[in-house]
Nucleic acid binder design. Structure first.
Lengths: 265, 265
DNA sequence: CGACACCTTGAAGAGGTTCAAGAAATGTGG
DNA sequence: CCACATTTCTTGAACCTCTTCAAGGTGTCG
């Protein structure tokens, strides 16, 4: 509900197909076959600068689309791995769970991001991917990705980059979890979220959290009460405004200063 | 010095080439050109079950070997990415550093493991790789890897698996940093180290730490004093013996119980 | 053998957690 | 559309774990 005023029209965040491509495409709701070449999220999840004939081949990557209702899982720990998923719309969390009941949110993913990479190594997923709002994903069978990336060099390198990016992202999370205090973690979290939303055409100062305080806490290695208290502290300090899930950042620089405060320790 | 009595002869941990292959190979110390097909670490860092002609091609992956003295870096944050490195001998840490002086060890790597994956996404390394003991690595230029993996399917899939494995490993670290207490973290750390050493033919109850308490602490998100105290507590409880860097595990099950103690919270 | 890096241990303190209660929002069924 | 149940969020107070600061011990290497 807060999203539409924040979204910038015509941007990558506007995830509906344009009128032309819809007219050309078959609209069978069961098996929606779609072309990456027409997708306005392409620049986020597919390699850029392809030759026309390569672009056509890329269309073979996506088998079908799949809708995932809020609260439902796209895949679960233990399930057989078959495909990577490119998020078209919606918002996901991924989390690992242990037998003894430990739980850790390992990431939040939004439109244009790829999930499922964890499953490659053992042909089974090792985490759950849960939709935090109604979502739609492009299903990309991995054997087809491997096949195509033998022929399209740009796709091959793109797959490698996506995996490397995820490794680097996780390094950042390890830094956060291993060396930051609560305020620093939450500030870094907010800056990261808003930066990614901005890259998708949303505001760089307002956002709607799609996850609960508990999920934020799990991701940041904090209890939900600490997350709530830290939000309140930022509000008291005049850095942000918070109304439930809605957050407005008033002082981006203050958040940056909090994250980079290591020097004065 | 503690290593030789623990190592099992003839195992993968015995990293020297056999007499035959040395006789055949040119021994120019400047540019040592070596064949993966003869390496007894192959099963750790290369795909298995290759056809003979594929095995020959794999030999093209490794350009040269490179020695890294204890304390020296294999690559540094900011350096241009060119190659992945397979560790032949020695022990590395990788760590990310921020301008404001924060520092986080993101992993410890031993023989047969691959480092450098962080550099793919932006053509620059985003962390430092430091040898914790004199080491030797196989340099594998990444463009050559990409070239070859277009032709050898098993290599292609192997590269994907290595990257996926690293992603899954980091999920585990996030779980550790985000949800475990000091004792649980150190117990998990010891079990992981000893398990990996065991896979290389070393003892599953004795090990020599190649890193300082401070480096362990950085990896586990703890201060070195906490690491030291937790070691001492494990000794008091009769779970391990510690003499500086030498550790003997007396009660593996006790360590396992500590890691999986979440249920009784 | 002396300098330096590394490790251990104690005591005090801070930051985050736990437990608890109530408020606010959200969803559901009549 | 409203009442009720449920989930989510906020806030307070006590507690606990880990950190910080400090001092001394141990090992290593030139």
């Amino acid at each position: 509900m807060f999203e539409s005023p924040i979204a910038m029209p015509g941007s990558a965040a506007d995830c509906s197909d344009n009128a032309f491509s819809q007219g050309v495409r078959r609209m069978n709701p069961q098996t929606i076959k779609v072309a990456c070449s027409n997708c306005n999220l392409r620049e986020l999840c597919m390699p850029m600068g392809l030759k026309p004939e390569e672009l056509d081949r890329i269309d073979e990557v996506v088998a079908v689309r799949r809708k995932v209702k809020r609260g439902a899982t796209l895949f679960r720990n233990g399930e057989t791995f078959t495909s990577l998923y490119a998020i078209r719309t919606g918002f996901f969390k991924t989390c690992v769970t242990t037998e003894d009941g430990r739980d850790q949110v390992t990431g939040f993913q939004m439109a244009g991001e790829i999930i499922g990479l964890d499953g490659i190594v053992n042909d089974h997923h090792t985490c759950d991917a849960v939709a935090l709002e109604d979502a739609e994903v492009c299903v990309m069978p991995f054997d087809r990705i491997e096949e195509l990336s033998r022929e399209v060099n740009a796709l091959q390198h793109h797959v490698h980059k996506i995996m490397s990016r995820e490794i680097v992202r996780e390094h950042g999370v390890m830094l956060l979890l291993g060396s930051m205090r609560a305020e620093e973690r939450l500030a870094a979290f907010l800056l990261n979220l808003v930066q990614r939303l901005h890259a998708r055409g949303f505001s760089s100062s307002e956002l709607v959290l799609r996850m609960t305080r508990e999920e934020i806490g799990s991701y940041l290695g904090l209890k939900l009460e600490t997350v709530s208290r830290t939000f309140s502290k930022f509000v008291d300090d005049g850095i942000i405004e918070v109304k439930q899930r809605y957050v407005r950042i008033l002082e981006t620089d203050a958040l940056r200063k909090i994250v980079n405060s290591q020097a004065c320790h």
